[in-house]
């Protein structure tokens, strides 16, 4: 059997995967009855529906023709996701200025067109702008400098 609609096939698998995680986790929550529904009732129901939809998509993908999945370019995606994670990890210990410079520089690596000096200037400018707007003007509780220094 050939997969004739790869986009549907993979979407279906993705739904089934989410449904499986949801239903496995929801096993631990009590179902209850209609009068006093437990915390597991609605998730179980939704998980079942999602699995069914996933199965329909997968099944259908063998019968009906559909589009192919375009090439995945994982490099820029992963670089950016990594940069975002770094920001999350660095912000509280090192402060906004450093975390922002890091995320801007790291995500700049995701594009072939970025130039180091330009990205550096951009990072510094954004850090100055953000400290000015978010910390001083809007008074959001963001640490600006490394926690050890203040």
């Amino acid at each position: 059997m050939n997969i004739r609609a790869p986009k549907d096939f993979w979407s279906g698998l993705m739904f089934i995967a989410f449904a499986a995680v949801a239903m496995l986790a929801a096993r631990g929550y009590s179902l209850g009855g209609a009068g006093k529904m437990g915390p597991g009732y609605f998730p179980m129901l939704l998980g079942g529906v999602l699995a069914l939809i996933g199965a329909i998509l997968v099944g259908r993908s063998f019968v009906i023709d559909g589009e192919r999945v375009g090439r995945l370019h994982l490099f820029p995606l992963c670089v950016i996701a990594f940069g975002v994670c770094l920001f999350g990890v660095l912000l509280e210990p090192l402060g906004l200025v450093i975390a922002l410079i890091v995320v801007v520089l790291v995500s700049a690596l995701a594009s072939r067109e970025s130039r180091p000096v330009e990205a550096g200037v951009l990072a510094l400018a954004l850090a100055a702008f953000s400290v000015g707007v978010f910390v001083y003007a809007l008074r959001l509780p963001l640490p600006v400098w490394p926690a050890l220094l203040s």
């Binding site: 999350g88 995701a110 067109e113 953000s130």
Partner: peptide, 26 residues
């Protein structure tokens, strides 16, 4: 090439600022 790192940077600040919670960024 200049716009997109700025977008990412602002998204990061925004995600943190809503609840002051670093896990939202992750």
């Amino acid at each position: 090439r200049l716009l997109f790192p700025a977008i990412i940077g602002f998204c990061c600040i925004g995600a943190f600022a809503v609840n002051g919670n670093a896990s939202d960024v992750l």
